Computed example of a mutant assay.
Amino acid sequence: MIRSRHFVRAAALAAVVLFGTACTAAEVPADATAVTDAAWPTPAGVGGPDTSAGVNTDTSCDPLASIRPTAGTSVPPGSHLAEIKARGKLIAGVDQTTYLFGFRNPQSGNLEGFDIDVVNQIAKALFGTAEGHVQFRAIPSSQREQVLKDHKVDVVVRTYSITCSRRKEVQFSSVYYVAGQKILVPKTSNAQSLADLAGKRVCAARKSTSLTKVATDPAKPIAVSVPNWSDCLVMLQQNQVEAVSTDDTILAGMAAQDPQVKVVGDQLTKENYGVGVPLDEQDVVQFVNAVLDQMRADGSWAASYGKWVGQRLGPASPPEAQYR
């Protein structure tokens, strides 16, 4: 009996040794010389320059002059507004990746930000409350005109700069926010302008006015296009680009998320944000303009600005409406 126990123990020990040897052998790579430094993967949809936004090249209109509201926030029978109200939901094209303006709160799962506040104010004026009456559709910058032309959304509120070239395809509200294009770089960088980034890779969103500015700058930085602004921050963090260039509002959100980057330089452009509306829906434009007028007057614009932007970009007042 004792000899049997010793035999079992010896056999078990031999099995452990054999198993351990087998595992060690299996863990050795078949060809260690084939292992190299792995590069960070680039975000999906990374491309080169795309100047189709046509920023500041078309001066055939007064881009900031919108349609004057005439009926306040009333809903005329038979109008596009009446159709939206009967549907029970306002369909809004927004961003879900730009911190401070349009982003998804990771704790609540809700969309939040300055632009989201504007959408909720429009819905509140139309339905009496925004709760349960907004259908958000997250879209990249490159799809803003198309979703309006296809009538897949009622409005686009997505840091949407008003230009004459865009006005040929969609309508815009009055200006509800004025931003300016700047540059985001690592805190270790000495760059202060696009001139300091000649021959360097600078990221911007596809079909944005910011990308056009980068691609056509005399210093000739290398424009890198991506679907969403959050992709630019990822590429900067992975050393795949030397800088990001877009509106200071968007860059402020990136800097708030990453303490290793900074916003630098003077404003390269002036960006006037408007609410995009399908070209054939004048009544919707007038309604939105009436809502924006209310926001300027009742303090809701100032409250939203103070909540999301003020502490990062300083004090500001709502831009005055311009009507034709």
Rank of each mutant, 00 (worst) to 15 (best):
I139H: 09
A316D: 13
T73I: 08
F287M: 03
V285F: 03
A223L: 06
D62H: 03
T163F: 11
S60C: 00
P49C: 02
V153A: 15
V202P: 11
L184G: 05
M295D: 07
S52T: 06
K152C: 05
T51M: 02
Y305I: 00
P315F: 10
G78T: 06
T24I: 12
V241N: 14
A34N: 07
S245L: 04
A302G: 00
L236P: 14
A130L: 01
Q257F: 02
A11D: 10
S317P: 00
D248I: 03
T98F: 08
R137Q: 15
V261H: 13
S79V: 02
M235K: 06
Q257T: 02
V75C: 06
Q181S: 13
Y323F: 15
V28Y: 06
T51P: 04
S174N: 15
R201S: 12
T212Y: 15
Q107N: 05
E131R: 00
E169M: 11
T33W: 13
A15C: 11
A10V: 08
P49A: 10
K168E: 14
T216Q: 15
A39I: 07
N105V: 04
L233W: 07
N289A: 03
T59L: 11
I116K: 11
K213W: 12
L81M: 02
V147N: 14
A243I: 02
S245F: 08
Q143A: 14
R5A: 10
A219I: 10
Q143H: 13
A39C: 04
T33C: 05
I116L: 07
G20M: 09
A53R: 00
R3K: 07
T21V: 07
P76Q: 03
S189A: 08
H80E: 08
L90G: 04
V275Q: 12
G72K: 08
D231M: 10
A14T: 03
V55A: 02
T212P: 03
V147M: 14
T159S: 15
R312V: 00
L126R: 04
